[in-house]
């Protein structure tokens, strides 16, 4: 499979993602510069974490207008798989590919720690190799991960099973204490209504191989591959 990883000025998890895609998953990773205008030939796209454009104005707000974004929106609208991790999630929100917005963490601090998340929906191209209710331990590293959306949109997210990951405790209980950043409804990751675009704040690429003593992130990449293998190729 050909997986495109978009490199914005200030991306800093692009090479980690490329490493997981190639060395761990055995697929072809293609780093795509944000000034490029095409994602042709790619089976899936990853928007990596980092601080695109220094987080100026709002996280993701300037990257959202990079030339490559038009191609990514078009790719997503045709049903292509798009995974946004951390800053990539923020860019997807700004681009309108996912609903809602990010606020500063409730505690104001940049949080860099492991967080437990519960798989709320295991029937997505990004979670089909997980089990519903499974608890994953994934690292988070962000200052703006406090997901917010209006009550009407939140109800729609809940009703359509678009909430894929929620912060929880070790036992899988979603409590206020297990919510690291104040996200509404403990949301850690959501998908779009069509199901082919996912954004999440935790970093699965940082825990996807044995050397880290934590491979909980592996199932997300595994799920994408399983989905792509059973997927009809996109029309050219």
């Amino acid at each position: 499979m050909n997986i495109g990883i978009i490199v914005f000025p200030g991306s800093n998890c692009d090479r980690d993602c490329a490493h997981v895609v190639s060395a761990v998953m055995g697929q072809s990773a293609h780093l795509i510069w944000h000034q490029d205008k095409s994602v042709q030939g790619m089976d899936a796209i990853i928007l990596p974490g980092g601080f695109s454009y220094g987080d100026y104005l709002r996280t993701g707000s300037i990257a959202r207008f990079s030339p490559i974004m038009e191609a990514i929106i078009e790719f997503a609208n045709r049903g292509g798989l798009v995974l946004g991790i951390c800053n990539g999630f923020q860019i997807l929100l700004e681009a309108g590919l996912l609903p809602g917005a990010m606020l500063r963490n409730t505690g104001l601090s940049f949080i860099c720690e492991d967080a437990y998340v519960r798989v709320e929906n295991a029937d997505t191209p990004f979670s089909n190799q997980c089990e519903a209710g499974q608890v994953l331990n994934l690292p988070i590293a962000h200052a703006e991960g406090n997901y917010y959306t209006d009550p009407v949109t939140l109800s729609a997210l809940q009703a359509n099973a678009q909430i894929v990951f929620r912060y929880c405790d070790k036992e899988g209980k979603c409590t206020t204490a297990s919510n690291p950043n104040g996200s509404i409804d403990n949301i850690a990751g959501i998908r779009n209504a069509q199901g082919n675009v996912l954004g999440l704040m935790p970093h699965p690429e940082r825990c996807a191989e044995a050397i880290f003593n934590n491979q909980d992130g592996h199932c997300i990449f595994d799920s994408m591959l399983a989905a792509l293998r059973g997927h009809t190729p996109l029309p050219a």
Partner: peptide, 8 residues
Amino acid sequence: KLLANMVI
């Protein structure tokens, strides 16, 4: 388009 995020 850019300066404000109308969600928040």
